[in-house]
Design a protein around this nucleic acid. Sequence first.
DNA 1: CTGTTAGCGCTTTCAA
DNA 2: TTGAAAGCGCTAACAG
Lengths: 341, 341
Amino acid sequence: MNIKEVARLAKVSTATVSRTINGSEKVTAETAERVRQAIETLKFYPNTNARALGSGRSSLYGLIISDITNPFFPELVKSFEDVAVQFGQEVLIANTNYDPHRMEVCVTRMLQRKVDGVAIMTSEMDEHLIDEMSSRRIPLVFLDTGTPQKGISNIAIDYASGIDAAVEHLSSLGHTAIGFISGPMDLTSARVRRRAFTNSIKRKGLKLDRNMIEEGNHRMDGGHEAMARLLDKEVRPTAVLTSNDMTAIGAMGAIFERGLKVPHDISLIGFDDIELSAFTQPGLTTVRLSRQEIAKIAFRALYDVKENASAKGAEFTIQPTLIERKSTGPVAARRGGKHPV
Amino acid sequence: MNIKEVARLAKVSTATVSRTINGSEKVTAETAERVRQAIETLKFYPNTNARALGSGRSSLYGLIISDITNPFFPELVKSFEDVAVQFGQEVLIANTNYDPHRMEVCVTRMLQRKVDGVAIMTSEMDEHLIDEMSSRRIPLVFLDTGTPQKGISNIAIDYASGIDAAVEHLSSLGHTAIGFISGPMDLTSARVRRRAFTNSIKRKGLKLDRNMIEEGNHRMDGGHEAMARLLDKEVRPTAVLTSNDMTAIGAMGAIFERGLKVPHDISLIGFDDIELSAFTQPGLTTVRLSRQEIAKIAFRALYDVKENASAKGAEFTIQPTLIERKSTGPVAARRGGKHPV
DNA sequence: CTGTTAGCGCTTTCAA
DNA sequence: TTGAAAGCGCTAACAG
């Protein structure tokens, strides 16, 4: 069951079948119709592998993420796929599991499948692996890491503006003791977010208390524990920013566990705006980083470079925006010390 | 950069390079070493498309799910991928978005990519699409739908035992008015779960009140609304089972919204045991349906049929297990009517 | 507008 | 154990 059989049944050459499949203009309407009939009755599905081999274009775009289980990614994957499908392209997803070795495996897969471009949405990336791909002229796009070059684009995230908005919001509610729960410090994105926070605090003229910064792991359990540590301190923050929403959600649990209330006792702001955050109790105020926007830009960046060889790789910027929900409120009257209420 | 260049550099034929790559026994250790050297220095990556075309085996296994954004699936995807990688195979993921048309697109993709097997983890599946695949002798495995046949396996879920355990747990806590929030009734799996619930209630000799069954959508918002409807009724349940965890989490929000407490006012049991459920406040008691187990069995079912043509397609059964956390407790003293507290 | 034909890169008999 | 050569199914010049 192949193109030859279709050709025979339609009484044309395989070339004509191929042209019909690929929507070439230069096929008579009737001929095309006859071919389509044949395809239909034979239930013929062109072999993608042969297609890629013959044409040199795989119509496949790679998407490398660190962990599909991290709620930040599924939405990104879905959006990326949606755009790709819109352009008649396919997506090859690869998980690194935060493991450098797996990253190498992922890149190998991309290379072997001859993808037409790769979106690298993990924050860590080995230089030589990048070379491996870019030296093969594979368009690349990074999320907030890497610098635009020939065929390499970058999507920068303006953390500063997003976090400034969050700090401003808190400060306008009267908070001055603002804590922060970071992501794992071996993650670039986590470091960048933390830095944006400290800068923002300084810019606002607030005092920066290193004691009020704890490290989480970008998961709920890390947020839970970090918040517990924060709550155990002599002086505690009246508001806490977190490096991502999962951390905030975990932190919220720790707060409830002590019999404290959000936002009454502590205000909480997350980062990312994952779907879940609209449904927590109370709804989580957070800084939205639109995955749909990221995905759309990422795909287009790759596609444009590939299709339109002139496009050289560009820098895009995404503005996170503050989403005010119910986890932030005015600073409560001081009830002193470690054991309020 | 292809197998020829490697062959030239290693001073062997392309056949020998191919054999080396594929770990054929009949290559001298020294020859193989020389080839490996050449591959290394040339940074050669065999073209998967050509490989598949030449050999007729894609080493690709399809995984069809309905929505990557549904927290049930990421873990399944990850586990499936892990097993596949262990066996040196790759995974092609396809989302249907619950849309029959997209399902057709997914099947087409599988067919075009000449996958070696397909795991269909969506509950709905067009009969003719199945034929399309099975008539091409593609091994198939379903999740709790479809019957074992030549090359078709099925993973049955023993909902009855899982839900029985949940009802028993509740009943032992003194609950008799047990409500249920179902999934969307156009979903087979949702109907099956609902049926398991009604059967279980009857078996326990409890009264089945149709008024205490509301329809959700397997998402948080649906759970939230369904629970709100339940709370507005004249007679309300003291405990509620839900068709999946997201529904339960949404329901929890609705309960809090009314100033009620879990489990003090209402006990809640979910289904699935998604990662999140361990971290809600209070932790969600739920019936665990192990995604890891499902993924492992699904892949093995496909792989065994493919590798070992003798395997004919089998029926597997998965036992869900009750995970007791903090969202269930003894029934509270009655405070009557619609407006407790 | 349609057909002929030479690849695409790898695998796999079949000989040697 | 190794090599030569014929495909695998499709695409893309190049003719006509």
